[in-house]
Design a protein around this nucleic acid. Structure first.
Lengths: 344, 344
DNA sequence: GAATCATCTCAAACCGCTTTGGATACTGCA
DNA sequence: TGCAGTATCCAAAGCGGTTTGAGATGATTC
């Protein structure tokens, strides 16, 4: 059942039917109701492909998911982020297009999306320092919103980010207040912008208290359980091991915990751990009482916000760069306690 | 730059240019090369929207992701599955459309997808027992492949599944061989088909050895860390606690491990754990030496296979139901050992 | 040299909708 | 009564491709 058939059935022109269904004013109320009823009766739905061609809009937004060809890892926050964004799209009649591509072809993918007109805009995930995607997308004129920011980018662009620097600064201060001095950072890969900012917050807090950051206590790797384990195991084997860890994610932290327990130590007593908690739905940080003390910020909510911003930008191409900085909460859980008195 | 412009530039008709680009035989080789060169020079890409309308194909497949409105959880295997499927789509010029919808509107979503012609086919995730989506999709004539199976469905349909029953049967036998008698099952939600099959494998193995399955040792819940923890904690507090656990996923197992360690027990010595390992990229089961003994089957690979099957089914509407059963490997890790001698 | 046949190319219809630019009928007002 | 103004509807031209059916050209056959 298409527009033309419906129109014939009703003895109307396609024009009128189209206008009736789309709420244009130049159609008699009685006629509109008649059309609406008929459309409902035949469960008519306008063909998306035709609408897209006729209006020149894709009614879709793209998420390009680069997969590093070497270490094929999918970002664990991805599912929840997508869920948040997806809700927004559904609510607004937009489709979500996912492109999974080898990371070296990512830029090309954006070009293709633009040339073929498959999407009205895109979300940029996991920005790196001076991320080349930002100038690229600006140049080719494909609307975009970055989830995160890209240090070292001069031009302005749309972004939604968590105040990672502040979060890790507060977390470090919290540990310092508990008497910890040897505080380790199990960071994400430090070509990722958020990881850079987190480290800055961490070192800032330390130096503000007159503590020189110890390079041996800073690691940077994938945010996996195994990487977290390895980093913590190494550091705990030092003659002067850390008494506290700052972990980039709950996943790394599970590895840290494994290492702590493997070393015969007890979490929250011998070793304190603070994580950044993205509130992953399948890895909740405990029920009522948080397992880990954490800086918390929902990645799903971020997904919603990013998507909303993109739809705004698409709807009003004129508006200037949109920016939104989210603050993380610091919540106290069972994984932190006063620094153990040193037995030296 | 569109077809017509390109044709004008070349002094050819749109017909010829279209045919030249699409490899039709009725065009002179010299002409074809001229066209190809010009297309490349102007970096011409046919407009996807126009192709879709003209051909009547969506060149897209849909993944409908239902979000339970009560417990808003995103399936953790989702990211990796999608990554696998996405690779296949990219390679074949198909788009992947993700619809995130409240689970009570899921069926409606399929109807919409069909009516609006947004996709050529869909993937059905997380089938439940006698899943209503299967008859629905069959009825409305939208090609689909199920990732998993749906017990209690009589009609035939396309599916790719892991032999969950066999996997859990083998895992249980392995524990029995180690002398374990009190073996607990920390299962996924048992309206999910895979969970039903896993339980069947588990009880089969037990009864084959003359052990009556103990309902107190079987739990069924979301596959989250917290749920795994709670289940294990409860069971370990029994007067006659289990000496081994079968966990539905590595995530549940992290919770089990937390409970084991909180109880002052040691994994692999006091308590054995076998997991089903989906090989999630961000939660690898150890590096070379597996952390957990596991039945292993890559969900990412499953994503690839499911996607390939769907594209086949779309390309050849006539072919009968496709079925593919994957066997899981049983790999030995550090989390299992002989049953501790009972001190009763 | 005419008829036949490939080979190559094109004009035009079509996919299903939106949207522009009227056309028609009716209303109100002088 | 005449005329501008409004309300309602429609024909037709897109959107940018694909595809059908036919024409033009040159080579081949008799």
């Amino acid at each position: 059942m298409n527009l033309k058939e419906l129109a014939t059935q009703l003895g109307l022109s396609p024009t009128t039917v189209s206008r009736a269904l789309n709420g244009y004013p130049e159609v008699n109320e009685a006629t509109r109701e008649r059309v609406m009823a008929a459309a409902k009766r035949h469960s008519y739905r306008p063909n998306t492909r035709a609408i897209r061609l006729a209006t020149g809009r894709a009614l879709a937004v793209g998420h390009v998911i680069p997969i590093a060809t070497r270490h094929e890892i999918v970002n664990p926050i991805f599912a929840d982020f997508i869920a948040g964004a997806g809700e927004t799209y559904s609510r607004n009649g937009y489709d979500m297009l996912l492109s999974v591509v080898a990371d070296e072809t990512e830029e090309n993918t954006y070009r293709e999306l633009k040339l073929r007109g498959s999407v009205d805009g895109v979300i940029v995930h996991s920005p790196r320092m001076a991320d080349p995607r930002i100038p690229l997308l600006t140049e080719i004129g494909l609307p975009f919103v970055v989830h995160g920011r890209a240090s070292g980018t001069v031009m302005s662009y749309n972004w939604v980010d968590v105040n990672n620097r502040r979060a890790f600064q507060r977390a470090t201060e919290f540990l310092l207040d508990l008497g910890h001095v040897r505080i380790a950072l199990v960071n994400g890969l430090e070509y990722m912008d958020f990881a850079i900012r987190r480290r800055a917050g961490y070192t800032d807090a330390l130096t503000a208290r007159g503590i020189a950051p110890d390079p041996l206590l800073m690691t940077s790797d994938q945010m996996t359980e195994v990487a977290g384990y390895q980093a913590a195991r190494q550091m705990l084997a030092f003659p002067n091991p850390p008494t506290a860890f700052l972990a980039a994610s709950i996943i790394s932290a599970m590895g840290v915990r494994r290492a702590v327990e493997a070393a015969g130590l007890t979490l929250g007593r011998d070793v304190s751990v603070i994580i950044h908690d993205d509130e992953l739905s399948y890895l909740r940080n405990g029920e009522d009482l948080p397992i880990f003390t954490a800086t918390r910020s929902s990645v799903r909510e971020a997904g919603r916000l990013v998507a909303e911003m993109l739809l705004e930008v698409i709807a009003q191409p004129g508006i200037g760069p949109q920016e939104r900085l989210l603050e993380a909460e610091l919540i106290i859980g069972q994984s932190t306690g006063p620094a153990p008195s040193r037995a030296d």
